[in-house]
Design a protein around this nucleic acid. Structure first.
Lengths: 123, 123
DNA sequence: TGTAGATATGCAGGCGGGTCGATGCTGTTG
DNA sequence: CAACAGCATCGACCCGCCTGCATATCTACA
């Protein structure tokens, strides 16, 4: 299934290096970035990442965020569908944790090849 | 001045590493990410980056994007205010180019790995 | 089986943002 | 000086999204 991120991890080139990216790639990358581009969701990622076992359930996140439970579930859903979080249900609780290298993958997609390569002419 | 990104490059910690980020930092980072989280703007960055001299004017970008000139100017404005692009007016044209390590900075903010000294709140 | 707690989903209101056409501004050219 | 080209700004439309309330679903337990 999707998880958006998974669809672009392996594919091809760094969207912001080399030749222009096409609409499709731009759409996909923008989609994942949209999931990140929200204060509440950034804080969710941060809270989960810094939680005891690197995981947290909805009930632990509602208070710190100051948002209603449905809203928190909504954001967690978006992050999960984007491939940034994974959900595991244990008993009555739903535990969320960061997908290991998901964010790193995004960072890599944004970062131009660390090798100077580049066909950039001097000037 | 502002440029959003500049306000957070130096400031503090990696938002997605260590302890939870506060609302203010989340807002700022989300703001910059919002600028990136749009297909048209990603393509603009890509187009400009891969242009002959690493720069391009509005008239060169309108056609490839398939958007109206006002819309393109609008997106360029957002990217500039976010600190991702810099604008230089030469004659009648406005040339845009990537701010050297702007995107790299964002990637670094997202990536926990590296150990960067920078302790915050000396005040 | 019935009840209570933890999450997910549906629905609706309100705001923000992408897009375009029209217009104003500035520098270039004849 | 007049006409024109390149951009920015303005106003407006419309769609998508964040949020909360109400409700459904599911698990644990008595």
């Amino acid at each position: 299934m999707g998880t958006a991120l998974a669809e672009m991890t392996m594919p091809q080139i760094s969207p912001l290096a080399g030749e222009p990216i096409d609409r499709a790639d731009a759409e996909r990358l923008a989609g994942v970035l949209k999931a990140l581009a929200d204060p509440a969701r950034l804080r969710l990622l941060s809270l989960i990442q810094s939680a005891p076992e690197g995981e947290a359930c909805v009930c632990d996140l509602t208070a710190p965020l100051g948002l209603s439970q449905p809203t928190v579930s909504h954001h967690l859903r978006i992050l999960t569908e984007a491939g940034l979080l994974e959900r595991e249900k244990r008993g009555v609780w739903a535990f969320y944790r960061l997908v290991p290298s998901a964010i790193g993958t995004i960072a890599d997609l944004l970062t131009p090849p660390r090798k100077r390569a580049a066909k950039k002419s001097p000037r």
